[in-house]
Amino acid sequence: MDDKVDFLAVIWHRTYRMLFSVRGLLALLMSVYMLVAGAYFLDSLMEAGTVTGELYALFIDRPDLQFQWFFFDGAMSKLVTIFLAPLFIFDAVSGDRTGERIGLVLSRPITRPTYMLIHLVSAILAFGVIFLGVLIPGYFLIHPQVPELTASAYLATTVLMYLLGFFALCVALLISTLVKSNLVSFIASFGLFSFLMMPNALKYTSDVMVDVAKFTPHYYATYFTTHNLEGGLFIAYAVVIILFSLPFLALAILRIRNEDL
């Protein structure tokens, strides 16, 4: 890191600007909506136990887990992987290119990897503030109605979902370095995440899909919605999701590092 540039000040400046912008407001509204939708989904399933009976049947041995599953798989994974995280980064580099700002920024005494990390870390923080800021209080609102949603499992899945958001940010950052248009980056990011979440969403349709889902971080992020929480496995899966993410981050940095601008 460049010793004379206050990296934290730059990050804070960008994070603050993102949070207090139309983008931040949109992300907040989206998070609140998805939380309410997730809770409503749970509520309706509990009230009218006939909705999607087949889904209930999946949890015939462990009915206590179905609530976790419905909540996170039904709403939160879509929120994280498709919408929220990429919103903070899809235009990071492509926006600087199309807005012709990249030359101004990179003529400053910062390295290109630092520039990429500034984008990534500020997006991680902005995403974290919105995501955790909605989900954690959300637990206290939902828990009294759904005691099966235990704090430890909820928190563990929330953390894994946050890491899934990190994965989404790394991939969207790579896409943003590869394309020159914000619109293309937007469509590619959201399209790719819709595609990537499919194997996990379809994993109960066949054994093959379970195997395919294991090649996506979504499988590990939602693992404890269908299994009991184990500390060691939780850490292992957190590491797995990070390992899924790092190659995309490395490719993004390499790409911008070697490019003539």
Binding site: D2, D6, A9, H13, R108, P109
Partner: peptide
């Protein structure tokens, strides 16, 4: 201000 921060200024 942002450009100044990126240049390492207080």
């Amino acid at each position: 201000t942002y450009m100044g921060i990126l240049s390492g200024m207080s």
